Deep mutational scan, measured.
Amino acid sequence: EPLWIRPDAPSRCTWQLGRPASESPHHHTAPAKSPKILPDILKKIGDTPMVRINKIGKKFGLKCELLAKCEFFNAGGSVKDRISLRMIEDAERDGTLKPGDTIIEPTSGNTGIGLALAAAVRGYRCIIVMPEKMSSEKVDVLRALGAEIVRTPTNARFDSPESHVGVAWRLKNEIPNSHILDQYRNASNPLAHYDTTADEILQQCDGKLDMLVASVGTGGTITGIARKLKEKCPGCRIIGVDPEGSILAEPEELNQTEQTTYEVEGIGYDFIPTVLDRTVVDKWFKSNDEEAFTFARMLIAQEGLLCGGSAGSTVAVAVKAAQELQEGQRCVVILPDSVRNYMTKFLSDRWMLQKGFLKEEDLTEKKPWWWHLRVQELGLSAPLTVLPTITCGHTIEILREKGFDQAPVVDEAGVILGMVTLGNMLSSLLAGKVQPSDQVGKVIYKQFKQIRLTDTLGRLSHILEMDHFALVVHEQIQYHSTGKSSQRQMVFGVVTAIDLLNFVAAQERDQK
């Protein structure tokens, strides 16, 4: 057995438009009618409502009807409940999964919650491996369901041993009777949507819809739904939504950006999952974080739909894509998950301010006199920076000697690579993860907040409520011999709460 199987392995699926269902090699399930009293909570997966979006479509000038398939009504709160249950049931049916076995899954959280929910009911041990950027709410729900959680670096490539995929496979090879159901490759993922989600949409719309818009992560949702719609409703256009920084969209030119990270969760990847059939997507749109969270908040405030950030991405694209539809036509959007997962993220004004998705003037509360002053007023001194090749031991000596707790790590040209902190280095040394002679590049981390000289002290204040420091950066445009230009970030300084307090105190003292 291989040590790991690539999540982007070539698909062996034989589905073709027009091929009889009787030739399918898979076990198919028909939607079942729910009894009045459910035998367990797993029976509350599927049969989610279709809700008309009344205000947002009109606000953006849509002539067509805009409908939302509300997947956050599933038992675990997301569309991923469907595939989690289906993968477990299919693994039980073919004898792969037996009582007492362990389920391991690399996930952005929602599939993990679905699997942990099913594992709690069915009696399996469950280990979820997820990147650090995923919300604390997801972690809390997983723990409450009895799952064990392993976190991995957000910026690790999918084929790196440190990625959530790599760590999951390492655990599988170490733990007896453990299984990775593997949402990236498992046919049960798109089949769950082909058999149930798509049929529900067709039934709820009486077979009449002209466009379907869905955000894409593993691709199982859009693949399964689109294949069924292509068979039953061939005139329906399928629109895929991919965040900026991901590479799922086609044509490839759409993916060209210097951005590699994004805040919206559960969609987009740096590889093409095996289950994603991009041939059934008629057109791709890219979405960005700001519009995703703005539209998610709009869905909550104006439509009462308590959905997550990827739902915002989907609707932001839908109001663009559906401009081509006329009166009497219908566009369906998939709202994948609930706001429950993001209470401390985009639902929080403070978080939105820190990330730059909300401006101070958007909030009406009274601010102190210094709130709208610029960061450049602080008069920061030149920063202490270190090269990635310097040793951890030497870096600790320098920081202690100069009285700093942290320093930016830059390359020879001064471009920011990340940050090192005294606390992080000492804990890594004590844990045996690094040696004093190791290069400081081994303990770089990139989960820090950046701020510009033109940003306000109010925004800085919000950042420092949650973080010990902020890195002050400025952009530099560099022209190359080819005539092309590129933008790079340079370090201007490091600012802490002490710097802000000293500035405010000094100004008030001078005024007296």
Score class of each variant (00 low, 15 high):
L378H: 08
E263L: 08
F357T: 02
H372K: 02
G309R: 02
L422S: 10
G245Q: 07
D277Y: 02
Q487L: 11
K366P: 15
L429F: 13
C392L: 12
C307A: 14
A497K: 09
V440G: 10
T389D: 13
T279M: 11
A407R: 02
I451Y: 11
D467S: 11
V472H: 02
S437Y: 10
T389K: 14
A413W: 08
F357Y: 09
M298V: 13
V280M: 10
T385C: 02
S437R: 11
D282I: 05
L325H: 02
V491S: 02
I239Y: 09
L417C: 15
I451P: 13
K512G: 15
T496V: 06
N424S: 02
T294V: 11
L387S: 11
L453D: 02
H474L: 08
V332T: 05
L358P: 05
T395K: 13
L426C: 13
T454C: 12
L380V: 12
S313N: 05
T279H: 14
E265L: 02
W369A: 15
L429A: 02
G328D: 12
G441P: 02
K484W: 13
M352Y: 08
L384A: 09
V386G: 06
G393I: 11
T482G: 02
L378V: 02
V491G: 11
L335P: 02
L306C: 14
Q476W: 02
H462E: 12
A318Y: 07
M352N: 02
C392I: 13
G304L: 02
A249D: 02
Q487Y: 09
P336W: 02
G403C: 11
K402M: 12
K449E: 14
Q376Y: 02
V410D: 10
D455M: 15
L373H: 15
T385S: 08
I451T: 04
R459N: 10
L335V: 15
V415K: 02
I416P: 02
G493S: 14
T496D: 02
G458S: 13
M466S: 12
P388L: 14
V386M: 10
A296P: 02
I238F: 10
T391R: 06
V264F: 02
S485E: 14
S437H: 15
W369Q: 05
Q406C: 10
K367V: 13
T456W: 14
F357D: 02
S287A: 10
G483D: 14
E253N: 14
M419K: 12
L500A: 13
Q329Y: 09
K446V: 12
L347S: 11
I238A: 02
V504L: 06
N424E: 11
C392E: 02
G432C: 05
V491N: 15
D499A: 05
G356S: 06
H480M: 08
S381I: 15
R340H: 02
D289C: 05
L305R: 05
G308S: 02
R350A: 14
T257N: 14
D270A: 02
R459K: 14
D499I: 02
E397V: 09
Y342V: 02
K402Y: 07
E244F: 07
T261W: 11
D405W: 14
C331A: 13
T391D: 02
R488A: 12
E290C: 15
F469I: 08
Y445G: 02
F285L: 10
K367C: 15
G483A: 09
H372I: 11
H480K: 09
K402T: 15
I267S: 04
S427M: 02
E397I: 08
H474I: 07
T261A: 02
R488Q: 14
H462M: 11
E253Y: 07
C331N: 02
L426Q: 07
L457Y: 14
I247V: 12
K366V: 13
K320N: 13
N341C: 02
L353I: 14
G414M: 02
G379D: 14
Q511P: 02
V241S: 14
V332C: 13
F293I: 04
V415N: 02
L363Y: 02
T364M: 11
K449V: 07
A311C: 08
V440E: 05
F271G: 02
G493T: 15
V386W: 06
T257M: 10
L306E: 02
V281S: 07
Q329V: 05
I498D: 13
D467A: 12
T364N: 02
A431P: 15
L384I: 04
K355A: 06
Q376V: 06
T482A: 11
A407W: 05
L399I: 10
D467V: 09
G403R: 14
